[in-house]
Amino acid sequence: MNIFRLAGDMTHLASVLVLLLKIHTIKSCAGVSLKTQELYAIVFATRYLDILTSFVSIYNTLMKLIFLGSSFSIVWYMKYHKTVRRTYDRDQDTFRHWFLMLPCLLLALLIHEKFTFFEVLWTFSLYLEAVAILPQLVLLQRTRNIDNLTGQYIFLLGGYRGFYILNWIYRYFTEPHYVHWITWIAGLVQTLLYADFFYYYFLSWKNNKKLQLPA
């Protein structure tokens, strides 16, 4: 565990907590894409299938449980909670997430490190995570009206990706045989998707103004 990996995990954890705080305390999920949240639930479910069979550390297992639990509870809140679900921007959140899942599954079947059930699903989760933010970014673009918590949520998620890239660079130079092209390319693609959002986030921060995306 290096400082970049820890910082990445902590920003990831913070992003989830910010979103749960918004949903649980304010009882609102306005501006949050259910499509993206469903994709994350699928990402964690397929990636952490090994939770019972492979043990790395208590830290890893605990974090896996937190990410699984939080992603499914966010989906549950948005779909079934009687107050929260009424604040969901159903009509704007129309991204077809099947269009993301199918190509990711095909790609995982074609490009993977090992052709086993767990490994292909694990690779699928990497590809899907890379693009899972797209429905959220489209929803932001459409509603344009972004409250602080939603902005912070996406900012923290992007931060998590950035720290993971630093972690990979660090591990590449400090650990022999640490080469994972699939993870790196998927992670890089994912981080690049945030670039545009980050640009406008920093502009609004610099000018001390509310975050607004151009039409």
């Binding site: 090994d50 790395v56 990410f67 993971y164 972690n167 650990e175 045989h177 640490y178 994972h180 993870t183």
Partner: peptide
Amino acid sequence: AKEEESHDEL
């Protein structure tokens, strides 16, 4: 060891 390495991240 390689397999473990690739799955020790979250």
